[in-house]
Design a protein around this nucleic acid. Sequence first.
DNA 1: CGGTAGCGGATTGTTGAGCAATCCAACAAG
DNA 2: CTTGTTGGATTGCTCAACAATCCGCTACCG
Lengths: 235, 235
Amino acid sequence: MTTQAEVAALAFAPLPRRESTAEAVAAALRAQISAGRLAPGAQLREEHLAAALQVSRNTVREAFRLLAHERLVEHALHQGVFVRTVSPDDVRAMYATRRLVEPLGVRGLLTAGPSGVVALKGLDECVWAAEQAAGSGDWHSVGTQDIEFHRALVAAAGSVHLTSMLDGLLAELRLAFLRLPDREALHEPFLDRNRRLVDLLEDGDEAACLAELESYLIAAEAQLLQVVGGPDLAD
Amino acid sequence: MTTQAEVAALAFAPLPRRESTAEAVAAALRAQISAGRLAPGAQLREEHLAAALQVSRNTVREAFRLLAHERLVEHALHQGVFVRTVSPDDVRAMYATRRLVEPLGVRGLLTAGPSGVVALKGLDECVWAAEQAAGSGDWHSVGTQDIEFHRALVAAAGSVHLTSMLDGLLAELRLAFLRLPDREALHEPFLDRNRRLVDLLEDGDEAACLAELESYLIAAEAQLLQVVGGPDLAD
DNA sequence: CGGTAGCGGATTGTTGAGCAATCCAACAAG
DNA sequence: CTTGTTGGATTGCTCAACAATCCGCTACCG
């Protein structure tokens, strides 16, 4: 049994924080975008969406602000909002950031004591889930798990700011994934590399981890640049 | 003379991008907040501000969304928006992040070639400006230059994502500064430390730089925690 | 024919009023 | 002292309208 004094002393999660209508609209759009049903570059018209979602135009605008801050859409004054298209420069910037930040996750994970073990287990589960998905040909899920893997890695660095920044960056990265016709060719090689990284982390060999990670990121960037750079030179 | 073909080939800054009314309102509030005229914890009422700024309530709401994303204000559903109050845990999180990120700036600056020299010059100017401000007793400007110094340092890491993340973090940090009655005591010791850091960077002694930086951040965190932790235990 | 100026439709930016939902503080009842 | 209840205030959202701006089209002109 729990006494009242004990109840009062409990530390609660800051807020159950329900979601507003605008947030719900943003979530709906986010889902459509990251599922690829809204192609990069597509314009989102306020009136159209307001009618489709049965909400006011103002509420749609509020949702747009939320998505714009996540960089999933771009807002051009008096022109509208468009699903973000990632340029080659964007890809380079993203991987420049990842090469700086993800090593911090490796260090954090290796120097943390028991919590490092927990984090490592989380990474292992991501790889496992990705392998399962690959087995059943669900390459979209493989991509999701790949992203989840690296998010968890950076989370091990122990900085909420870095983690949430990478959250946004990875969501942006997924936009780039969507432009690839053949997802298997993109994600397949990185399945084994994630597995190997986990193994190296278990061994605790920091130098080897960092080398593997660096090599992973360079390869991923090159592959993605080949995809992103091509089709868009037209516009 | 410049032919039309040459004009077409020029790379322009992405957008002159004028600001919308909502952004102007956000800017006005931002200025009030970081000048300390709006105390942390104070509630911002939509109707009041709409009347005061001669804009619609809807526009004020849009400005709130912008500021909420910058974490300068907190938004509680059906309760309103409040100027953010930074908790001791927030301070600890901010400095945990800075200890991870700022060393990346040092490395970036030292390994960059000619651009590193330029960045170093920028840092030197920040310190110089801070020393000038301190001489005339303008401790608010000293704080601004201190923030600018560390922003420039992280910018040298070469990641737009990291830079913009730190932008937000430092704006948040300034909120914490505002709660301190005696700004001189807060900023004075760090003037010399920034100067010393610049000297070490000029020498190119990476290990010494990192040690000095780490020591700086630990001292700053401790000092800030003493301020932030105290007055707020009451509420 | 290339280039430019202006026109019109479409879309966004902003306003203001209005109503429902929710929170908060004060008060009343057990 | 704790537990409903009530009323006022504030936010969440909607709706309709108007102004500002952009885009594509056409007509004009060297």
